[in-house]
């Protein structure tokens, strides 16, 4: 990363992991003890620490309302812009629909698994364990397939 950026760090770092991240053993043990499991935030740490000074950190990964241990001092000292929100879908739809219609975006290419609704428990199990390359499963109710 440093090689690509002449040692300065990236312009934009995106945390697309959120609370899913595995912390270090110490963080996990400490986190459970303090009821701060979501406090293990390696992806956000890396994002803050590897973005260049004055850069942008964008948080896409989902964090719950659980306390987090974030290196806030580096955010201040590097003068970062932090962007985050739950996407306001309705506001973005007109542009996204246009991108799909003119072929710029191909969102359905994300779908890796099509699962009948009746097999929802298998769907969760496979997706949660990341079995079979499962990245984006779609459930189909019987009334939709008939």
């Amino acid at each position: 990363m440093k090689k690509t950026t002449e040692g300065l760090g990236a312009d934009v770092c995106i945390d697309a992991v959120g609370a899913d991240a595995n912390g270090s053993v110490m963080q996990n043990i400490l986190g459970r003890g303090l009821k701060m499991v979501g406090g293990a935030t390696p992806a956000l740490h890396w994002a803050i620490n590897s973005v260049k000074k004055g850069g942008i950190v964008s948080i896409v990964g989902v964090y719950g309302p659980i306390e987090s241990l974030v290196p806030i001092g580096n955010v201040v000292n590097k003068g970062l812009t932090v962007r985050a929100n739950q996407a306001s879908v309705k506001r973005l739809l007109p542009r996204l629909i246009k991108h799909v219609q003119n072929g710029t975006l191909d969102p359905k290419a994300l779908i890796t698994h099509r699962i009948p609704l009746e097999y929802v428990s298998d769907g969760y199990r496979i997706f949660s364990a990341k079995l079979d390359g499962c990245i984006k499963p779609v459930l189909l109710p019987p009334s939709a397939t008939s």
């Binding site: 934009v12 770092c13 994002a47 964008s58 962007r83 306001s88």
Partner: peptide, 22 residues
Amino acid sequence: DVVPTGYQAAGIQPGDTVVVFG
């Protein structure tokens, strides 16, 4: 959800180096 959530995120300019964690 998934597409707008990614779309709203970045503030990227041409020429940028962008790191995605995850």
